[in-house]
């Protein structure tokens, strides 16, 4: 029962977000309003249609959640205490993609990212934590820079080295 209530709240929140989006964010993000001549439908048509469908779907979901008919679910594997790993993983990935790579370049950033992730996932042997990411980035360098001619972001710390 408690999970059903939590679910209803979540759906209600999504529904509110969708309505807000449709009424405020959408018109703000698409300045070109009505269809001019020779334009077929307005640029707002499709997004509006999709938002309407989303609102309807969420409303239906809210209704069925409130009336207790639960949507069919898979049985949960494992316990919630294992959630720290994926959250940690997400945080590491976003940190590097957002800031890390731009700051220290892809190679140094990638080695750190791989090392951190490996440790997060339970690897404790120090030589593995250091050597494996290095080899990984060496492989990436070979494949991307030498074979494919794609230049990954550099840190600019050492001008000569491709790091």
């Amino acid at each position: 029962m408690k999970t059903a209530r939590r679910e209803s709240v979540a759906i209600a929140a999504l529904l509110a977000a969708a309505i807000l989006f449709g009424l405020w964010i959408l018109p703000a993000g698409i300045s070109h309003g009505g269809p001019g001549p020779g334009e077929g439908l307005s640029p707002r048509f499709m997004p509006r249609l999709a938002t309407a469908a989303m609102v309807l779907a969420l409303a239906w979901g809210l209704l069925s959640s409130l009336t207790g008919t639960r949507s069919p679910r898979k049985p949960r594997e494992g316990r919630q205490s294992h959630i720290y790993m994926p959250i940690g993983g997400v945080a590491i990935c976003l940190a590097f993609a957002g800031v890390g790579f731009a700051l220290v370049g892809f190679y140094i950033g990638g080695i750190c990212m791989a090392a951190l992730l490996t440790v997060l996932l339970g690897e404790r042997r120090p030589w593995v934590v250091i050597v494996f990411p290095t080899l990984l980035l060496a492989a990436i360098y070979l494949l991307f820079e030498l074979a494919l001619n794609v230049r990954l972001p550099r840190s600019g710390l050492i001008p000569g080295l491709p790091i």
């Binding site: 290095t134 080899l135 360098y141």
Partner: peptide, 17 residues
């Protein structure tokens, strides 16, 4: 072999000065 390659590539990559 990889390590050797990597070393070779790094040295080859340094350059352009």
């Amino acid at each position: 072999a990889f390590a050797l390659f990597a070393a070779a590539a790094l040295t080859a990559g340094c350059g352009g000065q």
